[in-house]
């Protein structure tokens, strides 16, 4: 199925969970995730299923150093 991730179309298997999407896109869990403008809690990454046409935004917290 197709979803939008950070303004780009991404094709992923049906029933993908957020945690699986993050792994697929080479992100670790340490990111902020918004689905259709609603922010997920960290504890929801494991079980939240992605639906077709979801608009997903992932923000990497890039810090100092």
């Amino acid at each position: 199925m197709e979803v939008i991730v950070n303004k780009k179309i991404v094709t992923i298997p049906e029933d993908y969970k957020i945690i699986e999407l993050l792994k697929y896109l080479n992100y670790n869990k340490n990111v902020a995730v918004f689905i259709d403008k609603k922010q997920l809690l960290l504890s929801e990454y494991e079980n939240t299923r992605i639906r077709e046409n979801n608009n997903i935004r992932i923000i990497r917290p890039l810090g100092g150093g």
Partner: peptide
Amino acid sequence: HQSSEHDPFLTMPED
């Protein structure tokens, strides 16, 4: 850049 925390950490979820 080492005198305060950086903005992006405020985008992280509240838990």
